[in-house]
Computed example of a mutant assay.
Amino acid sequence: MNPIKVFLTIFAAGILLTFALGIMGYPANPEDVAQGEGEAVEISEFVTKNCASCHGGDLSGGMAPSLLGLTLTEEEIIDIIISGPGSMPPNLGQGREAEIAEYLLSLNQ
């Protein structure tokens, strides 16, 4: 088999894997998910790790809209976290959607 074809096949597989993991997401730190006796990460730290890369380090906006001064209800925020509208990946809350919504709304006070 032609070595160039082998190289291009492996290269294409690597690119596809990169895109797939980028779209689906991959937990940067498996310890962030509380299991058994493990202690859950504080919600502010969880939001920073999972949201700040798009919504800005201070959540005032970046590639994605600001999370400060939200006029949404808690239910609307939960729905957004679960459905992942636009280019936002769905289910980033990892079961903590209500906590995240409550935290984001507390930033407005």
Rank of each mutant, 00 (worst) to 15 (best):
N2H: 13
N2S: 15
N2F: 04
P3D: 14
I4C: 01
V6N: 10
F7V: 13
L8G: 07
L8E: 02
A12K: 03
A13Q: 07
A13R: 07
G14F: 10
G14K: 01
L17K: 01
F19E: 07
F19I: 15
G22K: 09
G22I: 01
I23D: 02
M24K: 15
G25I: 08
Y26H: 11
E31D: 10
D32M: 06
V33A: 15
A34R: 07
G36Y: 08
E37D: 14
A40F: 02
E42W: 00
I43Y: 05
I43E: 02
S44Y: 03
F46W: 07
A52L: 03
H55A: 14
G56L: 07
D58Y: 11
S60V: 08
G61S: 08
G62Q: 10
M63A: 13
M63K: 06
A64N: 09
P65W: 08
L67I: 04
L70Y: 06
T73Q: 06
E76Y: 04
E76H: 05
I77A: 11
I77P: 03
I77G: 05
I78C: 10
D79M: 12
I80T: 15
S83F: 01
G84Q: 12
P85N: 07
G86M: 09
G86D: 11
S87H: 04
M88C: 04
Q94D: 06
R96P: 01
R96K: 14
A98F: 02
A98G: 09
I100D: 04
I100T: 08
A101T: 07
E102Y: 02
Y103W: 09
L104Y: 08
L104A: 08
L104N: 05
L105R: 08
L107D: 05
Q109E: 08
Q109V: 01
